[in-house]
Computed example of a mutant assay.
Amino acid sequence: MNSLKEEILYFFRLGVHAADPNSLFEDFWEDHSLLQETFHTSKKNLFVFSVGKAAYPMAMSFVHDFPIKNGYILTKYGHLPTEKQIIQEDSIWKYREASHPILDQNSIDHSNEVLNLLKQLGKNDRLVVLLSGGASSLFEIPIEGYSLIDMISIQKRLLNSGKFIHEINLERKKSSKVKGGKLLSELNSELEVYTFVISDVIGDDPYTIGSGPTYPSENYFILGNLTKSIQTIIHKAKQLGYQTKCISDTWTGSVEETSYLIEKEFLSAIESNTKQMVLIGGELVCPVNGNGVGGRNQELALRITILLEKHQVNRNWMFLSAGTDGTDGPTDAAGGVVTNNTIALMKEKKWDPIVQLEDSNSYPILKDVNALVMTGPTGTNVNDILILLVEGSES
């Protein structure tokens, strides 16, 4: 590799790949061979409902092992292959897209469509629900008395509040007909239901992941979370000669708190002559204080470039903060990646980083200095990965 930026992006992609549905299902079936055999030998008709930002790759990974009768995929706009966006359905699958992180009319229309299909299933059928991050806004039917406008208002208020995801989803359940296990109550009591999940929730709380439409349930399985991604990055970094330090793989700090922690770790890292990696996995909390455009990872990157400017060191460094789903907030970026000269580039282009930070406007300023992480939809979703790299002094 020729640069720190190439290395840091490589590490991030490595972490994302470790949470790929194909990899996660392969590992899962190795550990659950009896359940796998049950699916192979069952005479029941198999129906798959896959919902979330990883809905399409999860569905394709599942049917690689098991033939199904019918299936329904509900995912975020732009997360289906182009041809599926055009065709929308074939002899087996219905392909649908809706809005995230704020629901829209398609969210409700598609949710009613799939619910009507699921209600037709009975004792001779088996339903497999494949759940990933983003399902809370994609799969939604309001209870009586709540309109689409009401639901949009509620979701915007919650998402801008800076609350933790379990608090947000707890509030969402109050106005929903399908969240918090309510989907199960809508279905035939004789229908077998299995749920397989890629967790984007710290602690893997099944009540919180996708707002838990099929929980509680005894047939509920978590395929993977952020831990595997973090371990994979650490393993490779050590092979490449980095001295590594993992702060946490369940981090839930605010962007402000996290930025000061990274600054502290940076000052510690430069005391060593060897090249250093500091790694954090988790989900940042980021209240929206202005009218700008950005996301929690982009704001953290902007904060880091402001904080580290005052530390004049003869060492190259690079910091990345990005979401493993490829989407940071309501933007098309996964996050931000900044380095020694980022702040100088911003000022050269007549930006005031502090003013942009105060307006929650991290996206335009990072874009203008080529400091966005752009991946497109990754096919998985296991929270955020934060990486700080510091070159060795001998470099």
Rank of each mutant, 00 (worst) to 15 (best):
L184D: 00
K179L: 00
D204C: 11
S229W: 09
S153H: 14
M151G: 01
K173L: 10
L187H: 07
G162W: 01
I165S: 02
K174S: 06
K236R: 13
E171L: 10
L240I: 05
L170W: 09
G212Y: 03
I149W: 07
I165H: 00
I234S: 10
V197H: 00
Q231D: 15
S161H: 04
S175C: 08
S161F: 07
L159W: 06
T232M: 09
N169C: 02
I202R: 03
Y146D: 07
G203T: 03
L170I: 09
L184S: 00
I230N: 05
K174A: 08
Q239P: 06
H166P: 04
S211R: 07
S153L: 09
S161A: 13
I222D: 08
R157V: 10
S217Q: 08
E144W: 09
D204Q: 13
H166Q: 14
F221H: 15
E186Y: 06
G210L: 02
I154Q: 14
N219V: 00
Y194W: 14
Y146K: 15
G210R: 01
T208I: 05
S185W: 10
L158F: 06
K156M: 13
A237P: 07
L226S: 12
V197S: 08
L184Q: 04
V201C: 10
N188A: 08
V178R: 01
Y215M: 07
E218K: 12
I209Q: 05
G203L: 04
L159N: 09
G212F: 03
